[in-house]
């Protein structure tokens, strides 16, 4: 298995881990009772912002740890640059991830249009962001294994 394939698998696993752990934590601290709109927007706004920050930091840390483990276990160095194949696969990953997010965004707008609770819109947006991230990594893994 190549470096890129392993890295894609680690990205998928870390994205799932971060999302599940963070969501479980936020679910546990969800305020009891009916929320005022102001409180609710504050809760979901902070949910998204903190999740974004946590994800970025965790991905950086996991990437550094992965590179160290990769060097130790294989004796190889990770590629220092992205060549044309990497860029092509990156583009395809972005395209698929973007498509999934747009789908989620439209679903979220649909939930507003059909008078669903406002929480549903935020949940759909957050889940579609997560699904978009995973889709991008799965796309990379697929193309590195099966070709372009």
């Amino acid at each position: 298995m190549t470096y890129q394939e392993k890295k894609s698998i680690v990205s998928i696993a870390s994205a799932i881990f971060i999302f599940v752990v963070y969501s479980a934590y936020k679910y546990a601290v969800y305020p009891d009772g009916e929320l005022e709109p102001k409180e609710m927007f504050h809760y979901w706004g902070s949910f998204v912002l903190v999740l974004t920050l946590v994800s970025i930091v965790a991905h950086i840390v996991i990437s550094i740890v992965f590179n160290i483990v990769f060097r130790m276990t294989t004796g190889e160095k990770e590629p220092k640059f992205a060549d044309e194949l990497d860029k092509l696969i990156e583009l395809k990953a972005h395209r698929n991830g973007f498509f999934v997010f747009i789908l989620g965004f439209l679903l979220a707008m649909g939930s507003l249009a059909t008078d669903r609770p406002i929480q549903a819109m935020f949940m759909i947006l957050i889940v579609s962001g997560f699904a978009s991230d995973v889709t991008g990594s799965v796309t990379k893994l697929y193309h590195y294994r099966r070709g372009v």
Partner: peptide
């Protein structure tokens, strides 16, 4: 040729058609 080893592997396996420049 200025690419990563993984790209050469993909080329040899026939998993990738290179750009004209490559």
């Amino acid at each position: 040729v200025g690419v990563t080893r993984q790209t050469i592997v993909a080329l040899e396996k026939g998993n990738y058609s290179p750009s004209l420049e490559l």
